[in-house]
Structure formats: C-alpha cells, structure tokens
Nucleic acid binder design. Structure first.
Lengths: 153, 153
DNA sequence: ATAAAATCCTACTAATTCGATAGGAATTAT
DNA sequence: ATAATTCCTATCGAATTAGTAGGATTTTAT
C-alpha cells in the first residue's frame, strides 16, 4: 500500500496543478486545509517534492508552492519512487533500486523472478502514463458521467 | 516490496511442489536448509500456510509438510494477501480489504482512484495466473534457454 | 527599518510493523 | 519409553511511519 506521504504528495500535486495554473504560488496552509493534510507534515512533503524538481517555491510574505514542470511531465511513478522507494515487488527486478535476492540460487532461471519482472513492467508502464494531466482528465470525465446518471433519474 | 515472510513462503511452496510431488511430507529443516530460511521463522510461516488451507502436515517422527492443493491451484496473489494484506495500492480500490480513503472528497469521481483501480486489476490478474505450476514451468523454460546459450559458446 | 508572514531545516517522539528467537506442549513412529 | 517432529505462545530488538516542535531564514508590505 502507498504510504500516507505518497498519498498526500499526489493529492497536493493534483491540487497545485488545478489551483496554481496561473503560475501564482499557493500557500502550504491552503493546500493543507483543502486536502485535509496535517500542516507540518505537508510542509516536509512539499519540500521534498521541491528538491526532486517537481515543485518550486517563493519564500516570504506572498510565498507558496507551484509546479516546476507541466502536469503532463509529472507522473505517479516518480512520486512513488521518491517517497516509497522501488515500485518492483522484489529487489532483483527493480530498476533504479536493484539488489540481488540473498537467498536466490540462480537469478537467470528463477521462475518467481520472471513473474515479478512482468508485474513490474506492467505496473511501471501504467504509473508512468498516470500524469497529473491524465488524473485530472479522468476525474473530469467521471464527473460528466455522474451528471448524466443523476439527470436521468 | 514483498515482506520476507511472503518471499520465504513462495520459495517454500515452490520447493514443496517440486520435492513433495510423491505426496510424502518434507521436514521443515530440509526446506529451511535448502532455501536458506531461518528454521524457526519458517516454522511459523508453514503453519500459517497450513491454516490457510494451502499446506497440510503430518506430526511426529516421520512428519513434515506437503501441498494440500495442486500446484495449479496455489497462486501468488493468495500468498501475498495472506502475509502482506491487500495487493491494491490504495485501500479504496482493494477488494477483500476495502476501506474508504479518509481524506477523499468524492470516491466516484476521483481520478487518482481511477488510476490505482486499473493498476490493481492488472496486477491481481497477473498474480492469480502465477501459480506454482506456472512458476516451475517458467523456470524450466529459462533453464533450457540458458543451456542453448552456453552450448553455442 | 521593522514587523509580519511565508518557506526551510533539524531534531525528536510515539506507535506500529518486521524479522527473528526461545521454550516447551502435543503428537507419532519405532 | 524415547526420539523426532509439528504446534503454539510469548517475547525482543531494530526499523519504519506519521507526525510534532521550534526556530532559522527569506521576502514583502508598511
């Protein structure tokens, strides 16, 4: 399961992609209140997203956070890796975080590894495609469908 | 990432599927040594697999563990759920372990949920197909391919 | 200049989970 | 009987997670 850090990060990013589309910075406390995230905790999360190059900030009185990249460029895979580490379920099939399985006899012919390698590929592909843009699009599509349902009743 | 419990469980199950194909029980210590799993830790794991109906055991002098189901019937999804809980990355898209996301405003139109719902479906499908039988088959196929490579050199 | 308001940074903490061990009870073949 | 095995409960140390505290730093507005 995703850690709360990652969940909060995704929600904050989506919020910033929506609210801060004019380029004006949004204050931490606004994001925290709107998305129901503990203020101080969010502070640390946004800072880490900034260090990772996804966000930028302005300090001081009119300060706040805003996207450093476009919503098309920021994807869930990168956010997950940042906070939760590898997406792979086994270290021996991880890409950035590769590590040999201690107990493994022959990595090349391991059937378990073969299975989890496939799972990783599929998952990473889907999460790379899941950009902030894609998420917002999906949600808008779902809202339209809900409206239809309601008006039919 | 998988917990060590789950990794050990999968390795032990594959071992039992291979070694215990005659139906004779295999001792814990044999599995532990062969798969490099701490003996006492493995004891608890096998017991849990028994309680879940995947293994059975014989007590006493000639005792040990053996598969309760066929290798085609035991799959990785069930093993993972047993030790690590839900396969879903968000509680709101889990099947057996469903829980609402506290901070979520509208589950029905949540773009994040939509993405992770797709990821879950794909992952579960792959892991359900990953039976002990499938794993052993894959490993044998890989061994053949390795032989070819070696003999070519 | 100064005060106000924001981000930035370090350190700490309580609770939970994880991996593993210890010790003995129950069971069974010889 | 006894030897060898599974079964069961309790415990432990280390790591991780979620969150808090407090103040340093930076910037704007007056």
């Amino acid at each position: 399961m995703l850690s709360k850090r990652t969940k909060y990060a995704i929600n904050a990013l989506v919020y910033l992609a929506r609210e801060g589309s004019d380029g004006e910075p949004v204050q931490i406390s606004r994001v925290a209140e709107s998305e129901h995230i503990p203020r101080k905790f969010l502070e640390a999360i946004l800072l880490e997203l900034k260090h990772a190059g996804m966000l930028n900030s302005r300090k001081g009185k009119t300060g706040g956070y805003y996207l450093q990249k476009t919503p098309e460029e920021i994807n869930i895979a990168d956010v997950m890796r940042l906070f939760d580490g590898p997406i792979a379920l086994l270290p021996c099939v991880a890409y950035k975080y590769y590590e040999r399985c201690e107990e493994c006899k022959d990595e090349e012919t391991c059937g378990i590894r073969s299975v989890f390698s496939d799972v990783r590929s599929q998952t990473v592909q889907m999460l790379k495609n899941a950009t902030l843009f894609e998420i917002i699009q999906r949600s808008e599509k779902l809202k339209k469908e809900t409206k239809k349902k309601v008006s039919k009743k």
